[in-house]
Design a binder for these strands. Structure first.
Lengths: 344, 344
DNA sequence: GTGAAAGCGCTAACAC
DNA sequence: GTGTTAGCGCTTTCAC
């Protein structure tokens, strides 16, 4: 294995190591000819700067941490959710020569704080991307903020000033889905809400109400059931909703897993989807396109959101320019087989 | 944020930095009383050694890389597969104070080699866990081996001497599944094979044949279809198998996605599962328990396998003792709703 | 524009 | 058992 160091490159190029450093770090004040010489030497020797040496000297680690809820605890979030987040973050890291450290973390644990400060002090990441629902938990955010490590929150649910976050249009897209169902003739559209800890998910309920109103449909509490994001809770809510004397003709669940629970119950009860009942989810998890019938849902641009977050972090570590405000990357409706016209 | 260094600890404890280093690294030759003094100072100051400084001085990075097939390319491997691998690797890392770098990698890319050597030269990981199917691809293994970075292959499919790998009993468990189906009275048991690139998956076909033989059933080429691990290919194979004049009563697919494709086709064709057709998969992906009917499948101990692999790597980097041979962690049958007695 | 020297925080090798 | 001295490979001053 080649242990090419900056000295080797400097020797070959006939310059000082400082100049090599300048070229490698794309700093200004290098004559074009010199730059070319150095770049050629770098290529010839296949030189790669040593991350650790770089970090030690520069107090920058070229490391980004992706923080998300530990799926091993309750099997949520779903693996697809995490993988898409990782993909986006990795994309940003790769183009900028940063590495990604993943850190699933259980917010219910008493030791979250020491867990997080330990991680940060050991690895000194240049930035932390915090996925929902951790992104709106004080016990997660506060220890991180206390270390002065830059971070970006994903779908924090609420806006807060002085920091940067990336979200999507949860509320608007939930309204759009509701209007879409109404446009199919549905008048009794039920809603299964998710975990209230997840603020962005809570916004979907508001969107549902907006959508009803925009469609001239009344809001009825009997048409709203409280799930907890799991398949089982979706099934339980569906049973409760469907045994009503005047059952809904469409059910909109705040995530795909719960929608899958609805489909499961409908299958068991011999209710045809979408003939007798339309079902819509949220997330476009891998499940959504794989189950039968495939699920009409909302696709969140998770990779893009994570990529923007990581990109902002990398930018601020490179040139100190930290952004603030909230970037909104719009979600989109994915209409599939599980929704159709209201039965007549 | 505390920037406590080893000097601060040494000062407070009234010893030299070397002694602090010894205590922190659990090296021998420290008097118990001294050790306690130092440990107290470490706790009081909340000292955490700086990873980069450590790495630079010791040529060990306390970093483990998990390498797997890039799912963004063909949506395989499934996200559940990757997440379970990550969980196991993380478990090993966490207990030993190592960090995990994830590296999805596209083996079809011409630049795999420079991609991998670049990663290794930049981060100098103490070890690499290589997931299947990358674990049996020369274009992946060779560049890694050339860098002398310790690695462990997961489910390499074939054994090779002089190195350590962790696998499972693919062949035996596939035979067991086949015998299980036979024990339900099935005599026409079809098999849908997966990607031949994945050697461990190829072993499942051998297991299927073993199982038939052990059950006194003949092997028939017409009952074997070649899929490519995708849902679509499972569906296509199912259609081909089921339109036969004498169709199978059970279909065993080499992975869950293909089994889901079979179920999909059966649903469309109005074939009842498991009443008229039994379906079995392999992997116990999240899909398996979520679809209807839930899938009888094989659960691979992926987290345990990855954990053992990472653990071995960490051990060899700590004390230089590298293992070899193959550890086998057994898979187990998960009998669910999709299999039942043969129709009479 | 470029280079020389200092030092980031730690561990290795060797003294004591 | 414990401390001292050199670096690890880079970036950061600050000269030139």
């Amino acid at each position: 294995m080649s242990k090419v160091t900056i000295d080797d490159v400097a020797d070959l190029a006939g310059v000082s190591i400082k100049t090599v450093s300048r070229v490698v770090n794309r700093e200004p004040n290098v004559r074009e000819a010199t730059r070319l010489k150095v770049e050629e030497a770098v290529a010839r020797l296949n030189y790669r700067p040593n991350l650790s040496a770089r970090n030690l000297a520069s107090h920058r680690s070229h490391l980004i941490v992706l923080l998300y809820d530990d799926p091993s605890v309750y099997e949520t979030p779903s693996s697809g959710y995490i993988i898409r987040l990782q993909q986006g973050t990795l994309r940003a890291c790769r183009t900028a020569d940063y590495e990604l450290l993943i850190h699933p973390c259980n917010y219910r644990d008493r030791k979250v704080k020491s867990n997080l400060t330990g991680l940060i002090e050991r690895t000194r990441p240049d930035g932390i991307v915090i996925a929902a629902p951790l992104s709106n938990m004080p016990q997660v955010i506060k220890p991180i903020a206390a270390t002065n490590t830059p971070y970006v929150r994903l779908s924090p649910g609420t806006r807060s000033s002085g920091e940067f976050s990336v979200g999507t249009n949860d509320r608007e897209i939930a309204a759009e889905m509701t209007r879409y169902l109404a446009s199919l003739g549905h008048e009794r559209i039920a809603y299964i809400s998710g975990h209230t800890k997840h603020k962005a998910v809570a916004n979907r309920l508001k969107g549902y109400r907006d959508g009803l109103e925009q469609s001239g449909l009344p809001y009825a509490e009997t048409l709203v059931a409280a799930g907890d994001n799991s398949i089982g809770s979706g099934a339980a809510c569906a049973e409760a909703l469907l045994e009503d004397a005047n059952p809904p003709t469409a059910i909109f669940a705040a995530n795909d897993d719960m929608a899958a629970g609805v489909i499961r119950v409908a299958n068991r009860l011999g209710i045809d989807i979408p003939g007798q009942l339309s079902v819509a989810g949220f997330d476009d998890s891998s499940l959504a396109s794989q189950i039968y019938p495939s699920l009409t849902t909302v696709r969140q641009p998770l990779p893009e959101m994570a990529e923007r977050a990581a990109h902002a972090l990398i930018g601020s570590s490179e040139n100190g320019a930290s952004r603030n405000g909230t970037d909104v990357v719009p979600s989109e409706l994915k209409v599939r087989e599980s929704t159709g016209r209201v039965p007549n």
